[in-house]
Amino acid sequence: MVSTPLRLAFMGTPDFAVPVLGGLVRAGYEIAAVYCQPPRPTGRGHKTQPSPVQARAEALGLPVRHPVSFKPEEEKAAFAALGLDAAVVAAYGLILPRAILEAPRLGCLNVHGSLLPRWRGAAPIQRAIMAGDPATGITIMQMDVGLDTGAMLLRGTVPIGPETTAESLHDALAALGAELIVPALDGVAAGTLVPEPQPEDGVTYAAKLTREEGALDFREDAAALDRKIRALNPWPGVWFEHQGERIKVLAAQPEAGDGAPSTVIDDDLGIACGTGVLRPTLLQRPGRAPVERRAFLNGTRIAAGEVLPCPATN
């Protein structure tokens, strides 16, 4: 680390950002303020809960702020008054106007969960799995006013395997972000790390996830549906309809085989797809606990020859 600790603001909200905040604290930086989204109602009781970053910051004794916007001049002035060397941003959830981006002496550095310029946007972890990418990673980026368009400072890679889930990839990327942000900050402060503009080729956008994406369409390839299941659990979750119930699929195995798409081809819940067969291995009925396939079939008969409904197409 540089000899004089940098004075930072940290801006993040969900679990992904917590290891990054921890890495900054362990490195000995001065955290002048932690910004995160305001507490929101969660769970069945809709009890207001602080975000994971707020909870961690308060446990560390760090001052927390959660403005709903940076448009008011008083919020911009309060941020500028912190006298920051830099701000570190990780899945914060608010758009930062130019006045905020330019207030710290060294600007704002973003910990982004993809190998930019691929998967700019809201859901890079899930989109990388769904697309069948062999790898993704972390990019430490010097922020500008665009959507994840800033110059790159450091990158690190994480492989995506046939069993990688959104949860496991999330955790690996969060840990890598915590590892890379310290040399990135120190390199920028020392002038030894030169920002590299993102290439114009290879830009893709990771659109925000929607609930409707969780519907299994067995006209797709079994391998693509397996990737969807691994990418979209726990949210929005993946399901198919059976006798008016929405059956969640939490894990599955793609296999060779054929048949008319959406047709159950055997008594062990092999479902024919556009290409191949998908065999769910962990399922959940509404209001029930998740169970393995055999236990599920003991209580819910889905016989060979049944045709499961597919979502309507536009």
Score class of each variant (00 low, 15 high):
G276S: 15
R279V: 06
N298A: 15
R293K: 14
P311H: 11
L308K: 04
A289M: 13
A312S: 15
R285D: 02
F296E: 00
P290K: 04
P309N: 10
A312K: 12
F296C: 01
E292C: 02
C310Y: 00
L308C: 06
G287D: 14
R285N: 06
V307K: 10
A312Y: 06
V291E: 15
T275R: 15
T300I: 09
G276F: 11
V291A: 12
R301N: 03
T275Y: 07
L297N: 07
P290N: 11
P286R: 08
L278Y: 09
P309E: 13
P286V: 09
Q284P: 00
R293D: 10
R288Y: 02
A295T: 12
A295R: 15
Q284I: 07
A303T: 12
I302W: 02
V277G: 07
L282F: 04
C310S: 11
A289V: 11
C273F: 03
A289W: 04
E292A: 10
A289S: 14
G276I: 15
P280D: 06
R285Q: 10
Q284E: 15
R293G: 08
L297A: 06
G276N: 11
A303V: 08
R301P: 00
F296P: 02
R285P: 09
R279T: 04
C273Y: 01
L297G: 10
G299V: 00
F296R: 01
C310R: 08
G274F: 05
L278V: 14
R293M: 10
L278I: 12
R301Q: 05
N298P: 00
R285V: 05
L283F: 02
A289H: 13
R288I: 00
L297R: 07
T275N: 12
R288H: 10
R294S: 07
P280C: 08
V291K: 07
G274H: 11
A289L: 15
C310T: 09
C310V: 14
R293V: 08
A295C: 02
P280E: 03
L297C: 11
V307E: 09
E292V: 01
P290H: 04
T300A: 08
L282C: 08
V277W: 07
R288C: 01
E306I: 05
R279Y: 00
E292G: 05
G299P: 02
A289R: 15
R285T: 07
P286L: 09
G305A: 11
I302V: 12
R279G: 03
R293Y: 06
A304Y: 11
C310H: 05
R301S: 08
E292L: 06
R294M: 05
V291L: 13
P290Y: 01
L297E: 05
P290L: 05
R294H: 10
L278M: 09
C273D: 08
P286T: 06
C310G: 11
L308M: 04
T275A: 15
F296Q: 01
L308G: 03
T313K: 12
T281Q: 13
L308I: 05
F296A: 01
P280K: 04
L308N: 05
E306D: 08
P311M: 13
T313G: 06
R285L: 11
G276W: 13
T300Y: 06
